[in-house]
């Protein structure tokens, strides 16, 4: 008899790494790092100009919120991040699914897409500056292009991997190609689509921060990092870095939380 259980080769479900529940153990290493940070700075093993103490860093972070309008910087960064990301997904998802829906279209467009994906967006600063000037639009456009190709490639791959059997099931019951696409390919691609959207969410933040640092702006977390660096204010530098890290982490966790509920059937 053949094996009764037929499993798909899906990526590990979101929120777990290769089937391992993270749980409380996930807190152990961050706590250890924090302890090490205290130890290194407490024992003055490194000069405070290079690594300020955690206490000083967190006090500075609170100070940035209270006296230096850090919320406005967060707002400005979030605006660029959100605009670029959402635009990238709105265009990338349908486009990617369309490409992956046909093997021929996929084969024809893969090398081009892979080329653009491999091109570091940050290396295109001059081009974006020429095209969009030094305002928000250049930064949004960079975040957009960073998200776009990752989303397209993931969606296309997800659609391409749609189980042949499910497509056939829909076809023998008389589904049109559009119905097959809407009711089978879309859902078959959804886990990979969301995985691409999650990857590009983090990537977009990186690109926005870097673009703020290099193009320059009035408000923005990247500008704050750059300002702190130019005046050797390492406490501020660390405070903003910790904030960016936490921000990225929390948004990612939120995404994973939603993802496991949307594609509840994966890995089952």
């Amino acid at each position: 008899m053949p094996t009764p259980e037929i499993r798909t080769k899906d990526a590990p479900p979101a929120g777990r790494s290769a089937g391992v529940r993270i749980g409380v153990w996930g807190f152990a290493l961050p706590l250890l790092c924090l302890a090490l940070w205290y130890l290194v700075t407490g024992l003055k093993l490194v000069p405070p100009l290079l690594v300020p103490s955690p206490t000083a860093t967190f006090r500075r972070l609170v100070g940035l919120f209270l006296h230096e309008h850090l919320t406005s910087d967060i707002g400005a960064t979030a605006w660029r991040w959100g605009c670029g990301y959402i635009l990238g997904c709105l265009i990338g998802v349908p486009f990617g699914l369309f490409i992956g829906n046909s093997r021929k279209v996929y084969a024809a467009s893969y090398p081009t897409l892979d080329f653009f994906r491999s091109l570091p967006v940050t290396a295109l600063f001059p081009l974006f500056l020429l095209l969009f000037g030094i305002g928000d639009s250049a930064k949004i456009a960079m975040a957009f292009s960073a998200a776009l190709f990752v989303v397209i490639l993931n969606c296309a791959y997800g659609a391409l991997q749609a189980k042949e059997t499910r497509l056939r099931a829909a076809r023998v019951f008389g589904a049109s190609e559009w119905q097959v696409f809407r009711w089978v390919v879309f859902f078959e691609a959804l886990p990979q689509t969301l995985s691409g959207m999650r990857t590009s969410l983090s990537l977009c933040l990186v690109v926005v921060i870097v673009s703020e640092m290099f193009i320059g702006t009035q408000l923005g977390l990247g500008q704050r990092v750059f300002d702190a660096y130019t005046v050797n204010d390492t406490e501020k530098l660390y405070a903003v870095l910790v904030l960016i890290g936490l921000l990225g982490y929390l948004i990612n966790r939120g995404f994973v939380w939603a993802e496991t509920r949307i594609v509840f059937w994966t890995g089952k």
Partner: peptide
Amino acid sequence: GYVFQDYRGYLMPW
């Protein structure tokens, strides 16, 4: 009406 061998592969898990 069609019934296939690989029932898991032919049903929609979502």
